[in-house]
Amino acid sequence: MLKDITIGQYFPGHSVVHRMDPRMKLILTIFYIVILFVVSNPFGFIPSVLFLAGAYMVAKIPVKMIARSIKPILPIILFTSILNLFFINGDSVIFTLGPLHMTWQGVYTAFRMALRLVLLIAGTSLMTYTTSPISLTDAIEQLLGPLKLVHFPVHELAMMMSIALRFIPTLVEETDKIMSAQKARGADMESGGLIHRAKALVPILIPLFLSACRRAEDLALAMECRCYRGGEGRTRMKQLHYSQLDFMGLLITVILLAVVIVLNLIPMPFLNWLM
C-alpha cells in the first residue's frame, strides 16, 4: 500500500532525543556528518558507530527502522563498493582477473565507503525519526534567520516547506483513495508493459492534480481570511529554547569529534599495508 511509504517518517516518542531542541538536533546531525568525513582510520569508525547505536537506543527507535531507511540506497552502496573493490590501485593484490585487480586497499576503501554511507543515512534518519517535520522546518527557519539580512526569503521558504510537508500525507491518502476508486471500476495497474502502465496512471493523475489545485486554492483563501501577510512581525506560539539536554548532546558530540581526531593522529604502522 502507498501508506507504507516513509518520507522522513516521524516516529513519535518522548525520549531524551525526541525532547531535544530541533535546532540542536539539526546542528548535531550536520556535525555528525562532518565527523564521518573526518574519520580517516578504521578505529575512528568504532566510536562513531557506538555513538549512533547509543543514540538509537536512547531514542527507542527499533533497529528495523534503520534497515528500512537504508533499503532505498542499497543499490548505490553496492555500486560504489563494487567500483571501489576493483578500481583502487594498490600493491597488496589479492587476485587479478583480466584488467581487474582486487587489492586489500580496495577492500578497505569499499568497506569504509559503505560504512560511511550507512552511518550517514542512519544518522540523518535518526533526526527525522525523532523530529516532527513541522518542528524541523521551524528549526530551519530559525537557523537560516541571519540570511534575512541579505533579503533571502527565509520565512517564505520555511512556510512552503511546512505546507509541502503538511500535504504529503494528505495527498498520499488522496492518491490511495483515487486508486481504490479506479480499481473498483476495474482499472488494471499491476500488469502489462511500460506503456500500458503509464496509461493506467492517467485516471489517477488527473483527479489528483485537480484535487491538489483545489486544496491549494482553499488553503490560500483560508490563509488570507486569517490575514496572513508573510513573516514580517509574526510571533510564534511554540518558542524554541535550548535546555541542558541540548548542551549535553553537544558536549557528547564534541567529545566524539575529539576522540576521532585523536585516533586519526595516533600513528598505526601495522595498518600501513591498508593505506
Binding site: K177, I178, K183, A184, R185, G186, P203, I206, P207
Partner: peptide, 17 residues
C-alpha cells in the same frame, strides 16, 4: 470480483477524469 461487486466511494465525483 470487482465487476460483480460495484463500489461507489464517498464523493465519487473526484474520480472523474
Amino acid at each position: 470480483v470487482r465487476f460483480h461487486v460495484g463500489l461507489v466511494f464517498q464523493y465519487p465525483e473526484y474520480q472523474l477524469f
